[in-house]
């Protein structure tokens, strides 16, 4: 474990917590893409499937973190699609998730480390995570604005994988550890946030709201 991965995971936890708080406190999921949250839930379940296959005692933080990620993302989907369904902006959350899931699944079968079920599920989860934020970014571009709290959520969510890139550089240099698939997908994922990062740093930090077109 290094400082970059630690802060990456903390940033990821913060993102999940910020979104849950926003929906719970405002009792509304306006401005939140339910599809992105569904895709994240799929990512966690397919990536941590080993938790279900051979359940081991919660003997380390990693198992606890995996369970937190899975339960928090499923609970977020429950809030969006059931509890606060009336506030779900389905009209603007219109990006076709199939256009993300199918290519990720196909690519996972073509480019993977080992052609076995668990490894392909892991690879699918990595590819899907890279593009899972697109419906959320698409929704913001359609509504033309993002609530400040949603911007903070996106900043934390984007920072998590950006910090992981620093972690991979660190691990390459000090542990000569390389996980090419995760690195390439992580770089693509972070690049998708660049436009948002620019808007966040030039606007939200100064107390302005993000309004598109910028």
């Amino acid at each position: 474990m290094n400082i970059f991965r630690l802060f990456g995971d903390l940033s990821h936890l913060a993102a999940i917590a910020i979104l849950l708080l926003k929906i719970w406190k405002t009792r509304s999921c306006a401005g939140v893409s339910g599809k992105t949250q569904l895709l994240f839930a799929v990512c966690f379940i397919t990536r941590y499937i080993d938790l279900f296959l051979h359940f081991v005692s919660l003997y380390n933080t990693e198992k606890v973190m995996k369970l937190i990620y899975i339960s928090a993302s499923v609970f977020t989907c429950y809030l969006i699609f059931f509890k606060f369904k009336a506030t779900y902006d389905g009209n603007h959350d219109s990006m076709r998730a199939e256009f993300l899931i199918v290519p990720a699944a196909g690519l996972a079968c073509l480019i993977n480390t080992k052609f076995d079920a668990i490894e392909i599920l892991w690879t699918f989860s990595i590819y899907l995570e890279a593009v899972a934020i697109l419906p959320q970014l698409f929704l913001i571009s359609k509504t033309g604005e993002a609530e400040t709290i949603t911007s903070h959520y996106l900043f934390a969510q984007g920072s998590y994988r950006a910090l992981y890139i620093l972690n991979w550089i660190y691990r390459y240099h000090y542990e000569s550890h390389v996980d090419t698939i995760a690195i390439v997908a992580g770089v693509v994922q972070t690049i998708l946030y660049c436009d948002f990062f620019y808007l966040y740093i030039t606007k939200v930090v100064k107390g302005q709201k993000i309004v598109l077109p910028a």
Binding site: R5, D9, H12, E62, M65, K66, Y69, T113, K114, D116, I118, E119, W122, Y164, N167, D179, A182
Partner: peptide, 10 residues
């Protein structure tokens, strides 16, 4: 050794 397919990151 066979690169363990174990991915040790979240």
């Amino acid at each position: 050794s066979q690169k363990s397919a174990e991915h040790d990151e979240l």
